[in-house]
Design a binder for these strands. Sequence first.
DNA 1: TTGTAGGCGTTATCAG
DNA 2: CTGATAACGCCTACAA
Lengths: 353, 353
Amino acid sequence: MTIDSELPGSSTKRASRPRANSLTVRDVAKAAGVSPATVSRVLNGNDRVDEKLRKHVERVADDLGYTPHAAARALASQRSHTIAAVVPSLEDPNFAVGVSALQQALTVEGYTLLIANSNYDEEEELRQVRALAAHGIAGMMLVGAQHSSQVYDLLETRNIPFVNTWVLDKGHPSVGFDNYQIGRTVANYLLDLGHTCFGVVAQRSPRSDRAASRLAGIRAALQERAGYVPHEYVIDRSHRIMDGQHGLRMLLALPDRPTAIICGTDTLAFGVLVEAQAQGLRVPEDLSVTGINDVEFAAHLTPPLTTVRLAVSEVGMHAAEYLLARIEGRPTLPAMSIPFSLIVRGSTGSPKR
Amino acid sequence: MTIDSELPGSSTKRASRPRANSLTVRDVAKAAGVSPATVSRVLNGNDRVDEKLRKHVERVADDLGYTPHAAARALASQRSHTIAAVVPSLEDPNFAVGVSALQQALTVEGYTLLIANSNYDEEEELRQVRALAAHGIAGMMLVGAQHSSQVYDLLETRNIPFVNTWVLDKGHPSVGFDNYQIGRTVANYLLDLGHTCFGVVAQRSPRSDRAASRLAGIRAALQERAGYVPHEYVIDRSHRIMDGQHGLRMLLALPDRPTAIICGTDTLAFGVLVEAQAQGLRVPEDLSVTGINDVEFAAHLTPPLTTVRLAVSEVGMHAAEYLLARIEGRPTLPAMSIPFSLIVRGSTGSPKR
DNA sequence: TTGTAGGCGTTATCAG
DNA sequence: CTGATAACGCCTACAA
């Protein structure tokens, strides 16, 4: 026998709104014979609750399979326990790995990660950041330092901690690589081998400040020791294999033929190797080729690719560390440099000519 | 002159809680000279509001740069406008591309995507699904059909629409490939070429029901026409290049040497090609090799890889379509098969022996 | 240490 | 068509 009609004589009552079919703190409280406040305190760990009571409430909550309503919690506490990452592309394994590491670190700390995709487009990035801000995120990871001023404004007025990644940035907190030094390192290595005429195949710089910094580093190294790379020796298109192939074709058509090709990614370098073979050029005897990233296949190309290894997952880990520290009011470093290393393999050598 | 002290003589007032520093509907309402209810109606589009008033409110909201508070909205409306995807790995370009497509489709419809990573682990997947459920998500995309029963229970009791992807599933809604047919297609193609002794290098089946279905398809085709693949001719490890290399070494050590190797991914096939070259085997004269996925580099290997092209981004698109339809109460199809096609290139041929 | 109750920002019901 | 106003589920200042 059920009694469910003890309610209103008063007809002021409203029609009840559709309710989520899950339990609430009140259900748990009732079941445990305590007040909702106590349940809340237990679940948020940090308050002083009698040890026995705490154990009891925890058990009851667990038995009932209770999970707090994230939105309600966020609304009441003004803290969302949610962090966002906006990356240029999820399909680039580089970013996928970094985001993966970020997520892992955040999950451990009970935070949820929201991932968005800007498609290498500043406008789209702004849209995404806006949407994310509406979700009351507690912090945000961005890629690169080049963002719409409205992005920076929004983040600052809303007081949302953020960190630029994959770059080192003087003006903002950052976790990333010294891309300028990466460029210098590669260029110097090739100069040491005796190369003097260089070609560069990279991603379009306006879309990637990382690529731009590396190019600047390359230019600087060359200028110090052997001149410079003229504009027509820098081919910047996209980042696919066929862009590498096309890039080499362009470079070979130039009057003074380069003996070394510096590529912005391993994928581009793969394209260059493919095209070199198609043109009957021997690598490294006729042409030296370098990549950046040290992706899985780099070591297995013929010849194995000389490239720069980036500790990408460290970017995600340290970004998480930085954001959590900011959110929880702990002290933070303004910038964190992630190491890289030149991996010399068979695709580079002294020019034989 | 401002009057802001007309409030309480009564000291029952509480200390004000920390407020979000952003505007609320009330601010917009005040500025537009209407009630919060009207603002809400305008912003949610669907109600009957006088056209002039609507325009006015829209302008005011826009000028103020108002963005609704997602958590509050979710709490009040019991709809979160958030969808989740749990994938085995974000670093696998396959899933990255699918998720990317899903996100794009959802963003267009004003939904936010939450991405989680199960690391090919059922327990971890359960944890992620639980956390996601707490976030009041409106729907969920899963990979494969093999999930902890608790996952299915949770989704069903909470009444959360979900869709299994990358597979076709009789028991649950799904968007994916007919993996069994993929296996059959590849095997039949090789049988047609005249091969009789096969090796298989794939991902560990218990972790991937996709791999298991494909293997079943392969076995079925062989059994119908030329026997079968003994257990020791199936090498299932992980999915890296070196696993492919190792796999071929194992297979070559077997008494009856296979003339064709079917690989579960292009990456594994790459490994097999590398090892074949190392062993001095000519492909396809001495050994035929196939992959699955048709990733970017497949066409550029030496020899170019025969593989199966999967329309991965369609998986994401149709998953989005399905979930939105369910959420909005529109009719849905129980299962959607995404096309695949065999791409024949240079890594396969008739056995010369 | 525990309970009570007001409010977080929005939506949706009801009355006008 | 518009305006009050009661929830939504939780947290936290305050009282006990």
